[in-house]
């Protein structure tokens, strides 16, 4: 699985932000992850709670992950729906011309600490 590789990037970015913001004791790292990504949150938590002790300033940090549902909008009829399965065809007018408006994001939203 790739959760370890993803968390390595999370810590790289979070640690830079920590240093820039003069935070010595990080309390929370908040991520936003779209449901289209194959990421197992329990595995993320498990790795986070191991890896955090290897980086200065993160011993007390908790990981919060905000999950985003995949949403498509039809460019023909304007119908906007949450995807139940990965069928990107418009269920109202059958058009293939749809746009994913949410659900494939994966970013660090914020950092909290003092």
């Amino acid at each position: 699985m790739h959760e370890g590789a993803i968390l390595k990037s999370v810590f790289d970015i979070a640690n830079n932000s920590r240093i820039n913001a003069n935070i010595n004791d990080v309390q929370k790292v908040k991520l936003v992850v779209g449901k289209l990504h194959h990421i197992v949150f329990q595995v993320m938590q498990m790795y986070f709670n191991i890896m955090k002790f290897e980086i200065i300033g993160f011993d007390n940090a908790v990981l919060e992950i905000i999950e985003r549902e995949p949403i498509i909008r039809c460019n023909r009829c304007g119908n906007t729906v949450i995807l139940e399965e990965a069928n990107f065809t418009c269920q109202v007018c059958n058009s293939h011309d749809t746009k994913l408006v949410q659900g494939d994001e994966m970013y660090i939203e914020s950092l909290e600490g003092n």
Binding site: I6, V10, L31, I108
Partner: peptide
């Protein structure tokens, strides 16, 4: 001490990308 909240808004795989 007051808790700071920092907006980061950076893609996790930014460097890879």
């Amino acid at each position: 001490m007051e808790t700071k909240k920092i907006k980061v808004m950076q893609k996790i795989l930014d460097i890879n990308d």
